[in-house]
Each structure stands twice: as structure tokens, then as C-alpha cells.
């Protein structure tokens, strides 16, 4: 079956508490909650605890939601049905 944008929408309904991010800079795989968080900037900045590279940016200003994962090579989340 083809992968559709509906499947992508499903991603954001997932619980990200056990998400693992693989850093695009150094390749380290780390639980999202173990990253270095900088919430006081104009947006949330999430940095790799191994190399301090920015792996994720998330912002909700100006009536839009923004997500930048360009610093993440891979995002791994447990599928709801796999629980």
C-alpha cells in the first residue's frame, strides 16, 4: 500500500515521549527527552547531547506551527499498535 500524507499526519498523533532521534551531525541515537532543550529562544531548540548540534526546532508563533527536523537523520517512534 502506498504511503500517503494521511500517514504523515498520523505521525503527529503519536506519543513522542519514547521517540529516539538520530543526530544528522554525529550519528548518535538518543531519546528525545534526553536531549538538551532550549525553550526560551523564540522557538524550542533541541540539541544533541553528544555534539550539541541542533536536531530539532519547533515553534508555534504567528498562528503557524513550524517543525524543522533538518538536523535529524532519523526519527523513531513506537507504533501505537505495537504497544
Amino acid at each position: 500500500m502506498a504511503t500517503t500524507l494521511d500517514d504523515l499526519r498520523g505521525l503527529f498523533a503519536l506519543d513522542l515521549t519514547d521517540a529516539v532521534l538520530t543526530c544528522g551531525g554525529c550519528g548518535a541515537s538518543t531519546e528525545l527527552r534526553a536531549h538538551d532543550l532550549y525553550p526560551d529562544a523564540p522557538a524550542l531548540v533541541v540539541r544533541c547531547p553528544s555534539c550539541t548540534a541542533v536536531v530539532l526546532r519547533f515553534g508555534t508563533g504567528g498562528g503557524r506551527v513550524r517543525l524543522d527536523l533538518s538536523g535529524t537523520r532519523l526519527l523513531t517512534v513506537t507504533a501505537p499498535s505495537a504497544g
Binding site: 526560551d40 529562544a41 523564540p42 540539541r47
Partner: peptide, 8 residues
């Protein structure tokens, strides 16, 4: 004078 920082 708030300190807004995006990194260490």
C-alpha cells in the same frame, strides 16, 4: 533584560 538562548 530577559536572556533568550538557543544553545549553550
Amino acid at each position: 533584560f530577559p536572556v533568550l538562548t538557543a544553545g549553550p
